[in-house]
Nucleic acid binder design. Structure first.
Length: 557
DNA sequence: GCCGTTTTCGGCCCGACTGTTTTCAGTCG
Protein backbone atom coordinates (compact mmCIF):
# COMPACT_ATOMS: atom_id res chain seq x y z
CA UNK A 1 0.00 0.00 0.00
CA UNK A 2 1.14 3.52 -0.73
CA UNK A 3 1.30 6.30 1.86
CA UNK A 4 -1.60 7.89 0.10
CA UNK A 5 -3.77 4.78 0.38
CA UNK A 6 -3.00 4.36 4.07
CA UNK A 7 -3.83 8.03 4.63
CA UNK A 8 -7.09 7.58 2.76
CA UNK A 9 -8.23 4.74 5.00
CA UNK A 10 -7.38 6.77 8.10
CA UNK A 11 -9.45 9.67 6.77
CA UNK A 12 -12.35 7.32 6.15
CA UNK A 13 -12.08 5.98 9.67
CA UNK A 14 -12.21 9.58 10.92
CA UNK A 15 -15.26 10.23 8.72
CA UNK A 16 -17.11 7.21 10.05
CA UNK A 17 -16.25 8.12 13.63
CA UNK A 18 -17.61 11.57 12.87
CA UNK A 19 -20.90 10.17 11.62
CA UNK A 20 -21.01 8.01 14.72
CA UNK A 21 -20.56 11.16 16.79
CA UNK A 22 -17.47 9.87 18.60
CA UNK A 23 -15.03 11.88 20.68
CA UNK A 24 -13.91 14.76 18.42
CA UNK A 25 -10.33 14.57 19.65
CA UNK A 26 -10.11 10.95 18.77
CA UNK A 27 -11.39 11.83 15.30
CA UNK A 28 -8.81 14.55 15.00
CA UNK A 29 -6.10 12.08 16.01
CA UNK A 30 -7.01 9.94 12.97
CA UNK A 31 -7.14 12.94 10.66
CA UNK A 32 -3.84 14.15 11.97
CA UNK A 33 -2.27 10.72 11.48
CA UNK A 34 -3.59 10.65 7.90
CA UNK A 35 -2.11 14.07 7.19
CA UNK A 36 1.26 13.09 8.64
CA UNK A 37 1.45 9.93 6.55
CA UNK A 38 0.33 11.73 3.41
CA UNK A 39 3.17 14.21 3.91
CA UNK A 40 5.74 11.65 4.93
CA UNK A 41 8.85 11.62 2.78
CA UNK A 42 9.73 8.04 3.61
CA UNK A 43 7.79 5.18 2.10
CA UNK A 44 5.47 3.72 4.73
CA UNK A 45 6.38 0.18 3.60
CA UNK A 46 10.06 0.84 4.34
CA UNK A 47 9.22 2.14 7.80
CA UNK A 48 7.08 -0.91 8.37
CA UNK A 49 9.95 -3.21 7.43
CA UNK A 50 12.25 -1.38 9.84
CA UNK A 51 9.56 -1.45 12.53
CA UNK A 52 9.70 2.33 12.78
CA UNK A 53 6.04 3.22 12.22
CA UNK A 54 5.72 4.06 15.91
CA UNK A 55 8.40 6.75 15.50
CA UNK A 56 6.15 8.85 13.28
CA UNK A 57 4.80 11.78 15.30
CA UNK A 58 1.04 11.49 15.70
CA UNK A 59 1.08 7.71 15.39
CA UNK A 60 0.57 5.97 18.72
CA UNK A 61 -0.12 2.42 19.72
CA UNK A 62 -3.61 2.00 18.27
CA UNK A 63 -3.04 3.59 14.87
CA UNK A 64 0.31 1.87 14.55
CA UNK A 65 -1.39 -1.51 14.99
CA UNK A 66 -3.98 -0.64 12.33
CA UNK A 67 -1.32 0.48 9.87
CA UNK A 68 0.65 -2.72 10.40
CA UNK A 69 -2.47 -4.68 9.56
CA UNK A 70 -2.96 -2.60 6.42
CA UNK A 71 0.61 -3.33 5.35
CA UNK A 72 0.02 -7.04 5.75
CA UNK A 73 -3.42 -7.43 4.21
CA UNK A 74 -4.53 -4.14 2.68
CA UNK A 75 -7.09 -3.27 5.31
CA UNK A 76 -7.60 -3.47 9.05
CA UNK A 77 -10.12 -5.05 11.36
CA UNK A 78 -11.19 -1.76 12.89
CA UNK A 79 -11.96 -0.18 9.51
CA UNK A 80 -13.84 -3.25 8.28
CA UNK A 81 -15.91 -3.20 11.43
CA UNK A 82 -16.73 0.49 11.05
CA UNK A 83 -17.73 -0.02 7.41
CA UNK A 84 -20.28 -2.53 8.62
CA UNK A 85 -21.88 0.17 10.72
CA UNK A 86 -21.64 3.00 8.20
CA UNK A 87 -21.60 1.88 4.55
CA UNK A 88 -19.59 3.38 1.72
CA UNK A 89 -22.56 5.21 0.18
CA UNK A 90 -23.19 7.07 3.42
CA UNK A 91 -19.58 8.25 3.45
CA UNK A 92 -20.05 9.56 -0.09
CA UNK A 93 -22.76 11.92 1.20
CA UNK A 94 -20.02 13.89 2.93
CA UNK A 95 -18.81 15.13 -0.44
CA UNK A 96 -22.05 17.06 -0.93
CA UNK A 97 -21.18 20.69 -0.10
CA UNK A 98 -22.89 21.82 3.09
CA UNK A 99 -23.45 18.30 4.38
CA UNK A 100 -21.38 17.33 7.35
CA UNK A 101 -21.25 14.39 9.68
CA UNK A 102 -24.20 15.41 11.83
CA UNK A 103 -26.58 15.89 8.94
CA UNK A 104 -25.50 12.67 7.26
CA UNK A 105 -26.10 10.87 10.53
CA UNK A 106 -29.65 12.26 10.80
CA UNK A 107 -30.40 11.18 7.24
CA UNK A 108 -28.91 7.73 7.66
CA UNK A 109 -30.52 7.01 11.03
CA UNK A 110 -33.98 8.31 10.22
CA UNK A 111 -34.41 7.15 6.65
CA UNK A 112 -31.87 4.34 6.39
CA UNK A 113 -30.57 5.85 3.15
CA UNK A 114 -27.37 4.16 2.04
CA UNK A 115 -26.45 5.74 -1.29
CA UNK A 116 -26.42 9.02 -3.19
CA UNK A 117 -29.08 7.71 -5.59
CA UNK A 118 -31.44 6.93 -2.73
CA UNK A 119 -30.70 10.29 -1.17
CA UNK A 120 -31.46 12.13 -4.40
CA UNK A 121 -34.75 10.27 -4.71
CA UNK A 122 -35.71 11.07 -1.12
CA UNK A 123 -34.80 14.73 -1.56
CA UNK A 124 -36.87 14.99 -4.73
CA UNK A 125 -39.79 13.38 -2.87
CA UNK A 126 -39.42 16.06 -0.14
CA UNK A 127 -38.57 13.46 2.46
CA UNK A 128 -35.51 15.33 3.70
CA UNK A 129 -37.22 18.50 4.86
CA UNK A 130 -39.37 16.47 7.20
CA UNK A 131 -36.34 15.46 9.22
CA UNK A 132 -35.53 17.26 12.48
CA UNK A 133 -33.26 20.27 11.96
CA UNK A 134 -33.42 20.10 8.17
CA UNK A 135 -35.51 22.25 5.87
CA UNK A 136 -36.32 23.04 2.28
CA UNK A 137 -33.04 24.86 1.65
CA UNK A 138 -30.93 21.95 2.80
CA UNK A 139 -33.03 19.62 0.69
CA UNK A 140 -32.55 21.76 -2.38
CA UNK A 141 -28.87 22.03 -1.62
CA UNK A 142 -28.63 18.26 -1.51
CA UNK A 143 -30.26 17.93 -4.92
CA UNK A 144 -27.94 20.53 -6.41
CA UNK A 145 -24.93 18.97 -4.74
CA UNK A 146 -25.62 15.48 -6.03
CA UNK A 147 -26.24 16.81 -9.52
CA UNK A 148 -22.91 18.62 -9.42
CA UNK A 149 -21.14 15.47 -8.28
CA UNK A 150 -22.81 13.45 -11.03
CA UNK A 151 -21.63 15.95 -13.61
CA UNK A 152 -18.00 15.40 -12.70
CA UNK A 153 -18.40 11.73 -11.92
CA UNK A 154 -15.40 9.73 -12.91
CA UNK A 155 -13.30 12.79 -13.64
CA UNK A 156 -9.92 12.88 -11.99
CA UNK A 157 -7.74 15.90 -11.27
CA UNK A 158 -4.20 16.08 -12.60
CA UNK A 159 -2.99 15.54 -9.05
CA UNK A 160 -4.49 12.04 -9.09
CA UNK A 161 -4.33 11.11 -12.77
CA UNK A 162 -0.86 12.33 -13.56
CA UNK A 163 1.10 10.33 -10.95
CA UNK A 164 -1.07 7.27 -11.67
CA UNK A 165 -0.24 7.56 -15.37
CA UNK A 166 3.47 7.96 -14.68
CA UNK A 167 3.48 4.81 -12.56
CA UNK A 168 1.71 2.83 -15.27
CA UNK A 169 4.06 4.24 -17.88
CA UNK A 170 7.14 3.16 -15.95
CA UNK A 171 5.60 -0.25 -15.40
CA UNK A 172 5.06 -0.66 -19.15
CA UNK A 173 8.68 0.24 -19.84
CA UNK A 174 9.71 -2.90 -17.94
CA UNK A 175 8.56 -5.04 -20.86
CA UNK A 176 11.43 -6.01 -23.17
CA UNK A 177 9.27 -5.82 -26.27
CA UNK A 178 8.31 -2.22 -25.43
CA UNK A 179 10.55 0.46 -26.91
CA UNK A 180 8.63 3.67 -26.12
CA UNK A 181 5.70 4.78 -23.99
CA UNK A 182 3.89 8.10 -23.86
CA UNK A 183 0.91 9.40 -21.98
CA UNK A 184 -1.49 10.79 -24.59
CA UNK A 185 -5.04 12.15 -24.77
CA UNK A 186 -6.44 14.86 -22.53
CA UNK A 187 -3.92 14.11 -19.82
CA UNK A 188 -1.02 14.93 -22.12
CA UNK A 189 -2.84 18.10 -23.13
CA UNK A 190 -2.95 18.93 -19.43
CA UNK A 191 -6.70 19.28 -18.96
CA UNK A 192 -7.38 19.96 -15.26
CA UNK A 193 -10.02 17.20 -15.14
CA UNK A 194 -9.70 14.06 -17.24
CA UNK A 195 -12.10 11.20 -17.90
CA UNK A 196 -9.40 8.60 -18.30
CA UNK A 197 -5.72 7.90 -18.78
CA UNK A 198 -4.64 7.12 -22.34
CA UNK A 199 -1.24 5.63 -23.01
CA UNK A 200 0.45 4.94 -26.31
CA UNK A 201 2.90 2.05 -26.38
CA UNK A 202 5.42 1.22 -29.06
CA UNK A 203 5.91 -2.54 -29.02
CA UNK A 204 6.92 -5.50 -31.17
CA UNK A 205 4.85 -7.96 -29.18
CA UNK A 206 1.37 -6.80 -28.15
CA UNK A 207 0.54 -9.98 -26.29
CA UNK A 208 3.57 -9.59 -24.02
CA UNK A 209 2.32 -6.11 -23.11
CA UNK A 210 -1.11 -7.45 -22.27
CA UNK A 211 0.32 -10.22 -20.10
CA UNK A 212 2.37 -7.68 -18.20
CA UNK A 213 -0.51 -5.24 -17.71
CA UNK A 214 -2.66 -8.09 -16.49
CA UNK A 215 -0.31 -8.36 -13.52
CA UNK A 216 -0.27 -4.65 -12.75
CA UNK A 217 -0.85 -4.25 -8.99
CA UNK A 218 -2.38 -0.78 -9.50
CA UNK A 219 -5.20 -2.11 -11.71
CA UNK A 220 -8.64 -3.25 -10.57
CA UNK A 221 -9.58 -4.66 -13.96
CA UNK A 222 -7.84 -5.30 -17.28
CA UNK A 223 -9.48 -6.24 -20.59
CA UNK A 224 -8.08 -6.85 -24.03
CA UNK A 225 -10.64 -5.11 -26.26
CA UNK A 226 -8.79 -5.55 -29.53
CA UNK A 227 -5.42 -7.02 -30.44
CA UNK A 228 -3.89 -3.56 -30.12
CA UNK A 229 -6.11 -2.11 -27.38
CA UNK A 230 -6.22 -2.78 -23.65
CA UNK A 231 -8.68 -1.06 -21.35
CA UNK A 232 -9.36 -1.28 -17.64
CA UNK A 233 -9.61 0.56 -14.40
CA UNK A 234 -6.97 1.65 -11.90
CA UNK A 235 -7.45 2.22 -8.20
CA UNK A 236 -9.37 5.45 -7.47
CA UNK A 237 -11.77 4.36 -10.24
CA UNK A 238 -9.75 5.88 -13.05
CA UNK A 239 -10.32 4.23 -16.41
CA UNK A 240 -7.31 3.65 -18.64
CA UNK A 241 -6.67 2.69 -22.22
CA UNK A 242 -3.44 1.39 -23.67
CA UNK A 243 -3.05 1.71 -27.42
CA UNK A 244 -0.29 -0.41 -28.94
CA UNK A 245 1.43 0.37 -32.22
CA UNK A 246 4.42 -0.91 -34.11
CA UNK A 247 7.56 1.23 -33.95
CA UNK A 248 7.20 2.80 -37.40
CA UNK A 249 3.69 3.97 -36.47
CA UNK A 250 4.55 5.54 -33.11
CA UNK A 251 4.91 9.24 -33.99
CA UNK A 252 1.90 9.64 -36.27
CA UNK A 253 -0.20 7.90 -33.65
CA UNK A 254 1.33 10.04 -30.93
CA UNK A 255 -0.07 13.06 -32.76
CA UNK A 256 -3.33 11.25 -33.53
CA UNK A 257 -4.02 10.17 -29.94
CA UNK A 258 -2.89 13.36 -28.22
CA UNK A 259 -4.95 16.00 -30.00
CA UNK A 260 -8.50 16.91 -29.09
CA UNK A 261 -11.10 15.55 -31.51
CA UNK A 262 -11.50 18.77 -33.50
CA UNK A 263 -7.78 19.37 -33.70
CA UNK A 264 -7.22 15.85 -34.97
CA UNK A 265 -10.00 15.99 -37.53
CA UNK A 266 -8.66 19.16 -39.05
CA UNK A 267 -5.00 18.27 -39.27
CA UNK A 268 -5.65 14.73 -40.51
CA UNK A 269 -8.31 15.79 -43.00
CA UNK A 270 -8.04 13.62 -46.14
CA UNK A 271 -4.87 12.00 -44.81
CA UNK A 272 -4.32 8.27 -44.50
CA UNK A 273 -2.29 7.84 -41.36
CA UNK A 274 -0.62 4.79 -42.90
CA UNK A 275 1.21 7.13 -45.27
CA UNK A 276 2.98 8.71 -42.35
CA UNK A 277 4.92 5.67 -41.21
CA UNK A 278 8.58 5.91 -40.34
CA UNK A 279 8.62 9.38 -38.82
CA UNK A 280 11.21 10.09 -36.12
CA UNK A 281 9.39 12.69 -34.07
CA UNK A 282 6.21 14.75 -33.85
CA UNK A 283 7.79 17.73 -35.59
CA UNK A 284 8.23 15.60 -38.72
CA UNK A 285 4.62 14.47 -38.58
CA UNK A 286 3.34 18.02 -38.35
CA UNK A 287 5.68 19.09 -41.11
CA UNK A 288 4.47 16.34 -43.36
CA UNK A 289 0.90 17.44 -42.68
CA UNK A 290 1.85 20.98 -43.61
CA UNK A 291 2.04 22.51 -40.17
CA UNK A 292 4.55 23.94 -37.76
CA UNK A 293 4.89 21.80 -34.61
CA UNK A 294 2.10 22.42 -32.10
CA UNK A 295 2.79 21.75 -28.41
CA UNK A 296 0.40 19.17 -26.86
CA UNK A 297 -1.23 21.64 -24.46
CA UNK A 298 -2.49 23.73 -27.38
CA UNK A 299 -4.08 20.97 -29.43
CA UNK A 300 -7.67 21.98 -28.70
CA UNK A 301 -8.60 23.85 -31.90
CA UNK A 302 -8.67 27.22 -30.21
CA UNK A 303 -6.54 29.05 -32.75
CA UNK A 304 -3.40 26.94 -32.68
CA UNK A 305 -3.97 25.52 -36.14
CA UNK A 306 -4.17 28.97 -37.71
CA UNK A 307 -1.12 30.08 -35.73
CA UNK A 308 0.75 27.02 -36.92
CA UNK A 309 -0.15 27.67 -40.55
CA UNK A 310 1.05 31.25 -40.38
CA UNK A 311 4.16 30.40 -38.39
CA UNK A 312 2.99 32.33 -35.34
CA UNK A 313 3.13 29.69 -32.65
CA UNK A 314 3.57 31.29 -29.24
CA UNK A 315 6.78 30.76 -27.27
CA UNK A 316 5.51 28.89 -24.24
CA UNK A 317 6.60 28.87 -20.62
CA UNK A 318 8.68 25.89 -19.49
CA UNK A 319 9.78 24.70 -16.10
CA UNK A 320 13.34 25.87 -16.70
CA UNK A 321 12.12 29.47 -17.01
CA UNK A 322 10.78 29.62 -13.46
CA UNK A 323 13.12 31.52 -11.16
CA UNK A 324 11.09 31.50 -7.98
CA UNK A 325 7.81 30.88 -6.21
CA UNK A 326 5.83 33.76 -4.78
CA UNK A 327 3.18 32.10 -2.64
CA UNK A 328 3.90 29.61 0.13
CA UNK A 329 3.19 29.03 3.79
CA UNK A 330 5.44 28.28 6.74
CA UNK A 331 4.65 27.00 10.24
CA UNK A 332 4.12 30.65 11.22
CA UNK A 333 0.61 30.03 9.87
CA UNK A 334 -0.58 26.69 8.49
CA UNK A 335 2.50 25.46 6.63
CA UNK A 336 4.45 22.37 7.61
CA UNK A 337 8.02 23.23 6.59
CA UNK A 338 10.31 25.77 8.25
CA UNK A 339 11.35 28.77 6.18
CA UNK A 340 14.97 27.68 6.07
CA UNK A 341 14.01 24.27 4.76
CA UNK A 342 11.72 25.81 2.17
CA UNK A 343 14.69 27.83 1.01
CA UNK A 344 16.82 24.71 0.67
CA UNK A 345 14.11 22.92 -1.28
CA UNK A 346 13.76 25.95 -3.55
CA UNK A 347 17.50 26.07 -4.14
CA UNK A 348 17.41 22.46 -5.19
CA UNK A 349 14.80 23.45 -7.75
CA UNK A 350 17.32 26.02 -9.06
CA UNK A 351 15.26 28.98 -7.95
CA UNK A 352 16.78 32.36 -7.13
CA UNK A 353 14.06 33.54 -4.80
CA UNK A 354 10.90 32.64 -2.91
CA UNK A 355 8.30 34.66 -1.05
CA UNK A 356 6.96 33.57 2.31
CA UNK A 357 3.29 34.53 2.28
CA UNK A 358 1.58 33.25 5.38
CA UNK A 359 -2.06 33.93 6.18
CA UNK A 360 -3.17 37.16 7.83
CA UNK A 361 -4.88 37.48 11.18
CA UNK A 362 -8.54 37.09 10.25
CA UNK A 363 -7.91 33.53 9.08
CA UNK A 364 -7.67 32.32 12.65
CA UNK A 365 -8.13 28.65 11.87
CA UNK A 366 -4.97 28.74 9.78
CA UNK A 367 -2.99 30.52 12.47
CA UNK A 368 -3.03 33.82 10.58
CA UNK A 369 -0.32 36.30 11.59
CA UNK A 370 -1.08 39.50 13.46
CA UNK A 371 1.09 42.59 13.06
CA UNK A 372 3.48 41.59 15.85
CA UNK A 373 4.12 38.08 14.60
CA UNK A 374 4.45 39.31 11.04
CA UNK A 375 7.20 41.67 12.04
CA UNK A 376 8.87 38.97 14.15
CA UNK A 377 8.82 36.72 11.10
CA UNK A 378 10.40 39.52 9.10
CA UNK A 379 13.38 39.56 11.47
CA UNK A 380 13.84 35.83 11.02
CA UNK A 381 13.78 36.24 7.24
CA UNK A 382 16.28 39.11 7.42
CA UNK A 383 18.64 36.89 9.37
CA UNK A 384 18.27 34.05 6.85
CA UNK A 385 18.90 36.44 3.97
CA UNK A 386 22.11 37.62 5.62
CA UNK A 387 23.31 34.01 5.61
CA UNK A 388 23.31 33.68 1.87
CA UNK A 389 23.82 36.28 -0.75
CA UNK A 390 22.85 34.30 -3.83
CA UNK A 391 19.27 33.59 -2.81
CA UNK A 392 16.49 35.92 -1.67
CA UNK A 393 13.56 35.22 0.60
CA UNK A 394 10.98 37.93 0.07
CA UNK A 395 8.93 39.02 3.06
CA UNK A 396 5.31 38.63 2.08
CA UNK A 397 1.78 37.97 3.23
CA UNK A 398 -1.31 36.33 1.81
CA UNK A 399 -3.57 39.02 3.12
CA UNK A 400 -7.27 38.33 3.39
CA UNK A 401 -9.62 40.41 1.30
CA UNK A 402 -12.42 41.14 3.75
CA UNK A 403 -16.10 41.39 2.90
CA UNK A 404 -16.15 44.93 1.54
CA UNK A 405 -12.77 44.62 -0.14
CA UNK A 406 -10.78 46.07 2.75
CA UNK A 407 -7.57 44.25 3.50
CA UNK A 408 -6.77 42.50 6.75
CA UNK A 409 -3.76 44.79 7.37
CA UNK A 410 -3.36 48.55 7.31
CA UNK A 411 -1.36 50.08 4.47
CA UNK A 412 1.59 50.86 6.77
CA UNK A 413 1.95 47.17 7.54
CA UNK A 414 1.68 46.13 3.89
CA UNK A 415 4.21 48.80 2.98
CA UNK A 416 6.82 47.09 5.15
CA UNK A 417 6.68 43.93 3.01
CA UNK A 418 8.35 43.00 -0.26
CA UNK A 419 5.28 41.37 -1.73
CA UNK A 420 1.55 41.23 -1.02
CA UNK A 421 -0.71 38.46 -2.29
CA UNK A 422 -4.38 39.28 -1.63
CA UNK A 423 -6.91 36.46 -1.54
CA UNK A 424 -10.52 35.75 -0.66
CA UNK A 425 -11.22 33.12 1.99
CA UNK A 426 -14.71 34.10 3.11
CA UNK A 427 -18.09 35.30 1.79
CA UNK A 428 -17.96 33.17 -1.34
CA UNK A 429 -21.61 33.75 -2.14
CA UNK A 430 -21.81 37.50 -2.60
CA UNK A 431 -23.52 38.43 -5.82
CA UNK A 432 -21.49 39.13 -8.94
CA UNK A 433 -21.52 42.90 -8.52
CA UNK A 434 -20.48 42.85 -4.86
CA UNK A 435 -17.79 40.24 -5.43
CA UNK A 436 -16.38 42.20 -8.36
CA UNK A 437 -16.34 45.47 -6.41
CA UNK A 438 -14.69 43.71 -3.52
CA UNK A 439 -11.84 42.43 -5.68
CA UNK A 440 -11.51 45.73 -7.55
CA UNK A 441 -11.02 47.51 -4.25
CA UNK A 442 -8.21 45.14 -3.35
CA UNK A 443 -6.62 45.63 -6.77
CA UNK A 444 -6.66 49.40 -6.32
CA UNK A 445 -4.65 49.14 -3.11
CA UNK A 446 -1.19 50.34 -4.03
CA UNK A 447 0.58 47.64 -2.04
CA UNK A 448 -1.21 44.64 -3.54
CA UNK A 449 0.94 42.83 -6.09
CA UNK A 450 -0.91 39.59 -6.80
CA UNK A 451 -4.50 38.42 -6.49
CA UNK A 452 -4.41 34.82 -5.26
CA UNK A 453 -6.74 32.09 -6.59
CA UNK A 454 -9.09 34.64 -8.16
CA UNK A 455 -12.29 32.64 -8.61
CA UNK A 456 -12.00 30.36 -5.57
CA UNK A 457 -13.00 27.28 -7.56
CA UNK A 458 -12.23 23.84 -6.18
CA UNK A 459 -12.34 21.18 -8.89
CA UNK A 460 -14.94 18.50 -8.26
CA UNK A 461 -16.11 20.36 -5.18
CA UNK A 462 -17.09 23.95 -5.70
CA UNK A 463 -17.55 26.22 -8.72
CA UNK A 464 -15.79 29.57 -8.71
CA UNK A 465 -17.73 32.65 -7.72
CA UNK A 466 -19.20 34.91 -10.34
CA UNK A 467 -17.14 37.98 -11.16
CA UNK A 468 -16.97 40.50 -13.98
CA UNK A 469 -13.72 39.34 -15.48
CA UNK A 470 -13.27 42.17 -17.96
CA UNK A 471 -13.48 44.84 -15.29
CA UNK A 472 -11.02 42.94 -13.15
CA UNK A 473 -8.55 42.47 -15.98
CA UNK A 474 -8.75 46.12 -16.91
CA UNK A 475 -8.11 47.17 -13.33
CA UNK A 476 -5.31 44.66 -12.84
CA UNK A 477 -3.56 46.04 -15.88
CA UNK A 478 -4.05 49.63 -14.82
CA UNK A 479 -2.81 49.09 -11.25
CA UNK A 480 0.02 46.71 -12.14
CA UNK A 481 -1.41 43.79 -10.23
CA UNK A 482 -0.63 40.25 -11.37
CA UNK A 483 -3.14 37.42 -11.28
CA UNK A 484 -2.09 34.12 -9.82
CA UNK A 485 -2.20 30.75 -11.46
CA UNK A 486 -2.53 28.73 -8.31
CA UNK A 487 -0.83 25.45 -9.18
CA UNK A 488 -2.64 23.22 -6.73
CA UNK A 489 -4.29 20.54 -8.88
CA UNK A 490 -7.58 21.08 -7.04
CA UNK A 491 -7.55 24.75 -7.97
CA UNK A 492 -5.65 25.64 -11.17
CA UNK A 493 -7.16 29.05 -10.65
CA UNK A 494 -7.10 31.14 -12.79
CA UNK A 495 -7.79 28.60 -15.50
CA UNK A 496 -6.15 28.52 -18.91
CA UNK A 497 -8.93 30.35 -20.69
CA UNK A 498 -8.82 33.21 -18.23
CA UNK A 499 -5.04 33.30 -18.34
CA UNK A 500 -5.18 33.70 -22.08
CA UNK A 501 -7.61 36.57 -21.76
CA UNK A 502 -5.43 38.17 -19.10
CA UNK A 503 -2.54 38.11 -21.54
CA UNK A 504 -4.62 39.92 -24.13
CA UNK A 505 -5.21 42.66 -21.58
CA UNK A 506 -1.50 42.85 -20.82
CA UNK A 507 -2.08 41.54 -17.31
CA UNK A 508 0.92 39.72 -15.84
CA UNK A 509 0.65 36.31 -14.21
CA UNK A 510 2.40 34.67 -11.26
CA UNK A 511 2.52 30.88 -11.33
CA UNK A 512 2.63 29.91 -7.67
CA UNK A 513 2.60 26.64 -5.78
CA UNK A 514 0.72 27.87 -2.68
CA UNK A 515 2.84 25.22 -0.94
CA UNK A 516 1.94 24.25 2.62
CA UNK A 517 4.83 21.79 2.70
CA UNK A 518 8.14 21.67 0.87
CA UNK A 519 6.91 18.74 -1.22
CA UNK A 520 4.15 20.99 -2.53
CA UNK A 521 6.69 23.22 -4.26
CA UNK A 522 6.68 20.58 -7.01
CA UNK A 523 3.00 21.23 -7.70
CA UNK A 524 4.13 24.22 -9.73
CA UNK A 525 4.42 21.80 -12.67
CA UNK A 526 0.62 21.75 -12.93
CA UNK A 527 0.52 25.53 -12.93
CA UNK A 528 3.08 25.60 -15.73
CA UNK A 529 0.96 23.21 -17.82
CA UNK A 530 -2.02 25.48 -17.13
CA UNK A 531 0.00 28.50 -18.22
CA UNK A 532 1.00 26.74 -21.43
CA UNK A 533 -2.67 25.93 -22.08
CA UNK A 534 -3.24 29.65 -21.67
CA UNK A 535 -0.62 30.42 -24.35
CA UNK A 536 1.63 32.15 -21.84
CA UNK A 537 5.32 32.73 -22.37
CA UNK A 538 8.08 33.65 -19.91
CA UNK A 539 7.58 37.34 -20.47
CA UNK A 540 3.99 37.10 -19.22
CA UNK A 541 5.00 35.47 -15.96
CA UNK A 542 6.62 37.57 -13.29
CA UNK A 543 8.34 34.72 -11.51
CA UNK A 544 10.38 33.90 -14.59
CA UNK A 545 11.97 37.33 -14.32
CA UNK A 546 15.24 37.99 -12.57
CA UNK A 547 15.12 39.58 -9.16
CA UNK A 548 15.69 43.16 -10.34
CA UNK A 549 12.94 43.12 -12.92
CA UNK A 550 10.61 41.47 -10.43
CA UNK A 551 11.38 44.08 -7.76
CA UNK A 552 10.63 46.81 -10.24
CA UNK A 553 7.23 45.27 -10.83
CA UNK A 554 6.55 44.83 -7.12
CA UNK A 555 7.51 48.40 -6.28
CA UNK A 556 4.82 49.98 -8.39
CA UNK A 557 3.56 53.30 -7.02
C1' DG B 1 -6.29 8.58 20.09
C1' DC B 2 -1.92 11.04 20.95
C1' DC B 3 1.08 13.61 23.67
C1' DG B 4 3.79 15.01 27.48
C1' DT B 5 4.43 15.37 31.39
C1' DT B 6 4.39 18.58 37.60
C1' DT B 7 4.60 9.95 35.03
C1' DT B 8 -1.07 8.54 34.81
C1' DC B 9 -4.50 12.01 33.18
C1' DG B 10 -5.84 16.48 31.21
C1' DG B 11 -5.49 18.98 27.12
C1' DC B 12 -5.93 18.89 22.37
C1' DC B 13 -6.33 25.70 16.85
C1' DC B 14 -11.49 29.30 16.41
C1' DG B 15 -14.89 32.38 14.72
C1' DA B 16 -18.58 33.49 11.64
C1' DC B 17 -22.20 32.32 8.57
C1' DT B 18 -26.29 29.58 7.28
C1' DG B 19 -30.43 27.55 8.00
C1' DT B 20 -32.91 26.06 11.20
C1' DT B 21 -34.90 27.73 14.74
C1' DT B 22 -37.23 31.08 18.09
C1' DT B 23 -31.95 30.67 20.74
C1' DC B 24 -28.69 27.55 18.42
C1' DA B 25 -26.44 23.51 16.03
C1' DG B 26 -23.84 22.40 12.02
C1' DT B 27 -20.54 23.53 8.50
C1' DC B 28 -16.54 25.59 6.72
C1' DG B 29 -12.19 27.67 6.06
Amino acid sequence: MTNREVAQILVRIADILGIKDENPFRIRAYRNAAEVIYRLEENINDLHRLDRIGDIPGIGKAIKASIKEMMDRGSCEYYDQLLNEVPEGVLQMLSIPGLGHKTVRVIYENLGIKSLEELLKAARANEIQKLPGLGAKTENNIIKGIEMLAQNAGQATLGIASPAAERLKNYLLEVDAVSAVSVVGSLRRGKPLVNDIDILVEARDFLAVYDHVNNYPGAISVNRIQPDLISGQLTYQIDFEIIMVEPEDFYPYLVWTTGGKEHREIIFENIDIKNLRGMNNEEQVYEKLGYQYIPPELRENTGEIEASRTGEMPFLIEKRHIKGDLHMHSPWSDGGTEIEELREAAREMKYDYIAITDHSKSLTISGGLNEERLSAQGLVIDALNRQCQDFTIFKGIEVDILKEGQLDFADEVLASLDIVVASIHSYFNLDREEQTERILRAIRNKYVNIIGHLTGRLLNRRPGYEVDIDRILMAAHKHQVALEINSHPDRLDIDAELARRAREYGVKIAINSDAHHKQDLELIKYGIINGRRGWLGPDDIINTWDKDRLLQFLNKK
